[in-house]
């Protein structure tokens, strides 16, 4: 059976891992290559790199990071942050990324999803969606530009459109849960799972092992993304996987 995926996310600024990563025996706490290698050893199933500077100059730096990591670490790599053209995608995929995640640019220009899927294949195009519950209108809304801008667009409808346009996967972050460590937004993913049949990666809210077990009861969610709880070793990937396996969730060991 297909294993559920545990996916650490690394924020990259100027070619360095931004948030401190708190592993023992790391020579250089900001080196993306060294950190990626540690995560591979720990059994991470994929890695996501998020370019949090995302200016033109830094995008070239990001391609260099991907190039270096892909020479040392042989696992799927997704890169996101500021990707807004086929040329951006081409540069990163050429450097060694397997998938690119597009967010704000896809909202501004949904045809970019189709163009990317046609050129590189749907499997290479991840649409990332930042979502917040809007109580007055009782719907999930899409936010862009690092979660700062409310688009007023219904997130579930946008997800369906993104898939229709050729998205091969959806990376859906609950802004309500992000950083809270109170568990994933299972309601969001349940509703989403009824509407799309592409793989969904859930993000936002991971705090304890049980959160992953709960999340993965949803067959539509095949991946879970988390950052600080892994970086600061509040949870270890081997522990999470052991626990998942003990609870009947298929994981790669």
């Amino acid at each position: 059976m297909l294993a559920k995926r545990i996916i650490p996310c690394l924020d990259i600024a100027n070619g360095r891992v931004k948030k401190g990563v708190n592993f023992v025996n790391l020579q250089d706490v900001g080196d993306p290559v060294e950190i990626a290698a540690v995560y591979e050893q720990q059994g991470a199933d994929e890695l996501v790199f998020l370019d949090i500077t995302a200016t033109n100059e830094h995008r070239k730096t990001m391609a260099d990071v991907v190039e270096q990591v892909s020479q040392q670490v042989f696992m799927p790599l997704t890169v996101g942050g500021g990707i807004s053209s086929l040329a951006d995608m081409d540069r990163l995929l050429h450097a060694g990324a397997d998938k690119v995640a597009i967010n704000s640019a896809a909202i501004a220009n949904p045809a970019l999803i189709t163009a990317g899927a046609k050129r590189f294949g749907s499997q290479a195009i991840v649409v990332a969606i930042d979502v917040k519950w809007d109580a007055p209108s009782k719907q999930f809304l899409v936010y862009t530009h690092g979660g700062t801008k409310n688009t007023g667009i219904n997130a579930l409808k946008w997800a369906q459109q993104a898939v229709a346009n050729g998205a091969g996967e959806l990376l859906v972050t609950s802004m309500d849960r992000d950083g809270t460590k109170q568990g994933f937004d299972t309601q969001l993913y349940t509703e989403l799972g009824k509407l799309v049949t592409v793989p969904i990666i859930a993000s936002g809210g991971a705090g304890k092992t049980a959160d992953f077990i709960t999340l993965f009861q949803n067959p539509s969610v095949t991946g879970a993304l988390a950052a600080s709880i892994f970086h600061y070793r509040e949870l270890s990937i081997p522990d999470v996987k052991r626990s998942l396996q003990a609870n009947g969730v298929v994981v790669r060991r």
Partner: peptide, 10 residues
């Protein structure tokens, strides 16, 4: 069934 198959399988 989710299509594509994306991930690790045994």
């Amino acid at each position: 069934r989710i299509v594509p198959q994306a991930g690790w399988n045994e």
